[in-house]
């Protein structure tokens, strides 16, 4: 259960978030939409505790992460997998070591168990056989999938993805979407930031629309069709996902 209450964040004179409120219950896939530079990544970082909000609180499993002890924060982080927008792989480590990193930090797995899990995660994101490569040897999409594998490796309860499908081809996008849905079946809650409304439609239980520092829409994918907003109208018009319904 994630509760975001009245979160404000500004950088210099720029107000990025002005009073964000929403709840996310478990086993839900929530997609955050919003135009570029509106503050989606900032919101996600606040939820995971990488940025401190100027005001407001974020509660994860009833622990207020904006002011809790490092011990509690560590326990919460164990439950969260985070995929950075730019992947943020450790570039001095191999793909294997990157994915094993969280396992070594959070679990008491033996070397064999870690190896098994790393291979398994790489298979999930369709990257078998690249464990010895360094991040600079990977393409953008491969980096992104490695980051996803790293985030899900230690079986977190929540997965926060900042544009997990950015830079991937349509087949791969579909595969990642399916992966997120599979995670939900295993009881994992996901928050996904995306620009791809087709993906949003495919995976979301709920869509949040971030606009001008506020959540102006919070509802199901079908309901968003009838929502009066220029940005959404354009998104839908250009990607035409409702074509098949209109026929």
């Amino acid at each position: 259960m994630i509760k975001v209450k009245n979160v404000y964040k500004r950088f210099g004179i720029k107000n990025v978030l002005c009073g964000i409120n929403f709840d996310i219950s478990s086993k839900e896939i929530v997609v955050i939409l919003g135009s570029s530079g509106i503050g989606k990544s900032v919101l996600l970082k606040i939820i995971v505790g990488l940025l401190k909000p100027d005001a407001g609180t974020v509660e994860i499993d009833n622990i207020n992460i904006t002011k809790c002890s490092t011990f509690d924060l560590q326990r919460i982080r164990r439950k969260i997998g985070y995929v950075f927008q730019e992947a943020a792989l450790f570039d001095s480590l191999t793909v294997y070591e990157n994915i094993a990193f969280g396992l070594k930090m959070f679990t008491t797995f033996t070397e064999d168990e870690i190896k098994f899990r790393v291979i398994e995660c790489l298979k999930i994101v369709n990257l078998e056989g690249i464990e010895h490569l360094k991040p600079y040897e990977l393409s953008g999409g491969m980096k992104k999938r490695t980051a996803l594998a790293r985030a899900i490796a230690y079986n977190p309860n929540y997965v926060l993805c900042d544009e997990p499908t950015m830079g991937l081809d349509i087949v791969m996008i579909h595969k990642i979407n399916k992966l997120i849905i599979d995670l939900k079946k295993k009881g994992i809650t996901s928050i996904v930031v995306t620009h791809d409304i087709k993906s949003a439609y495919e995976i979301a239980d709920r869509i949040l629309l971030l606009y001008d520092g506020k959540i102006i829409f919070n509802g199901t994918p079908l309901a968003i069709k009838y929502y009066e907003n220029d940005y959404i109208k354009k998104l839908i018009k250009y990607s035409q996902i409702y074509e098949k319904y209109d026929k």
Binding site: V48, R77, F84, D91, F106
Partner: peptide, 16 residues
């Protein structure tokens, strides 16, 4: 360099 590529942030999310 690790800071500007968010690798330091990644360390936090991975429990260290």
């Amino acid at each position: 360099a690790m800071k500007i590529t968010e690798q330091l942030d990644a360390l936090y999310t991975l429990g260290t």
